[in-house]
Simulated scan of single mutants.
Amino acid sequence: MTDIKLESDFVAVEGSLKILGPDLKISAENRKVSSNRQTYRRALVHGNGDRLIVNFHDDYLGVEINGRRNEGIQLNGNVSVNGTDILDIINDLQEAVGNLMENQETLAERIKELEIKAGLRPTKQLESWITANRKLLTKTKIRIPTIDITRS
Score class of each variant (00 low, 15 high):
L107T: 15
N103C: 05
I116D: 08
R143H: 05
R143K: 01
E105Y: 14
K135H: 08
L107Y: 11
R134H: 04
A96Y: 11
A132Y: 01
V97R: 03
L107W: 13
K112H: 12
L107E: 10
T140S: 09
E127S: 15
L114M: 04
K135T: 10
E102K: 07
T138Y: 06
E105P: 01
K135Q: 00
M101G: 05
K135S: 10
K141E: 13
T131E: 15
N133Y: 02
P145A: 05
P122D: 06
L107D: 06
E95G: 04
L120N: 01
R121H: 11
T140C: 13
R121M: 12
K112R: 14
L136Q: 08
P145K: 01
G119F: 08
Q94E: 11
T106R: 15
N91D: 04
E113Q: 15
E127K: 15
P145T: 02
D148E: 09
N133A: 06
N91A: 11
I142Q: 01
L93E: 06
R121K: 06
I147D: 00
T106K: 15
V97C: 05
Q104Y: 10
K139S: 14
E102Q: 07
K135V: 14
E109Y: 15
I90R: 07
A132W: 03
M101A: 03
S128C: 02
M101K: 03
G119N: 06
I144Y: 08
K117F: 03
K135R: 12
A96K: 08
M101E: 11
G119E: 00
I116A: 02
T131V: 05
E127G: 05
E105G: 01
N99S: 06
P122N: 08
E95N: 12
I116C: 00
I116M: 01
R134D: 15
K124Q: 10
A96H: 09
G119K: 10
K141C: 07
E115A: 10
E113I: 07
K135G: 00
I130P: 08
K135F: 10
N103T: 13
D148A: 00
N103A: 09
E115P: 03
T146C: 01
G119T: 03
R143D: 08
S128I: 06
L120H: 09
G98R: 06
N99R: 13
T123E: 15
Q94W: 13
T123F: 14
L107H: 13
K139Q: 07
G98K: 04
E127R: 01
I116T: 13
D92N: 14
A118C: 04
T106S: 14
I147C: 11
S128K: 04
K141P: 05
V97S: 06
Q125S: 13
I144C: 09
I111G: 03
L136V: 08
L114V: 03
D148N: 03
R110G: 09
L93W: 12
A108W: 12
I144L: 02
I130N: 11
K141G: 02
R121W: 13
D148K: 08
L107I: 14
I111F: 07
L120Q: 11
Q104K: 11
S128Y: 10
S128W: 12
D148C: 04
E102D: 04
N91F: 14
M101I: 14
T123N: 05
L107M: 07
N91I: 15
K139H: 03
L114E: 14
N91S: 12
E115H: 00
K124I: 12
Q125P: 06
T131F: 08
L100P: 10
P145N: 00
K141Y: 12
L100F: 11
P145Y: 12
G119M: 10
